[in-house]
Each structure stands twice: as structure tokens, then as C-alpha cells.
């Protein structure tokens, strides 16, 4: 099973991003996967097919990185 994750540097940024993205796209707030360490504990999970839409909608956000998670390992998107 693979999915996308937006990880954030700060918890406040993560919570603000959820507010912005939730009405636009299907996202789920989740604890940042253990394999990604250099970020705060809150991430937003999304379907990989929505990657482009997420990227576009996230343009106004700061301090974030998109990852693809697969079998407990990650690759930056």
C-alpha cells in the first residue's frame, strides 16, 4: 500500500495547512510516519493520484515537503 504524505517543519503550519486543504481535497491528518524524522509530528495523508492537485493547493504554504510512503520507507515527491 502506498500513499502520499505532506510533512511540516512546524505543528502550527501543519494545522493551518489542514484547514486550508481539507475543504479542497480528501486528506487525513496522521502522525508523521516514523521513517520521516526531520519534521514535526503532524502530517497530512493524501492519495498519490492527487499529488498534482496537492502540490498546486499547497503553494501558499511554507515549511513542508511531500513524500511518497511505501512499505515503511519514503521517497521525496
Amino acid at each position: 500500500m502506498s500513499y502520499g504524505v505532506i510533512a511540516f517543519v512546524s505543528t502550527h503550519d501543519a494545522m493551518a495547512a489542514e484547514k486550508l486543504l481539507k475543504p479542497l481535497l480528501p486528506i487525513t491528518m496522521m502522525p508523521t510516519p516514523r521513517c520521516i524524522t526531520a519534521s514535526c509530528g503532524i502530517s497530512l495523508r493524501f492519495e498519490l493520484e492527487d499529488t498534482d492537485k496537492i502540490r498546486e493547493a499547497s503553494q501558499s504554504l511554507s515549511g513542508y515537503q511531500l513524500y511518497r510512503i511505501e512499505d515503511g520507507s519514503y521517497t521525496p515527491l
Binding site: T11, A14, M15, E18, T28, M29, M30, P31, I42
Partner: peptide, 14 residues
Amino acid sequence: SELGASLIKMFFYT
């Protein structure tokens, strides 16, 4: 309370 709401969401997700 806003942080608490985020945490409980992530708790049930986990």
C-alpha cells in the same frame, strides 16, 4: 483545544 482536536484525530487514525 485546537491541538487537542488534532491529537485525538491522529490517535484514532493510529
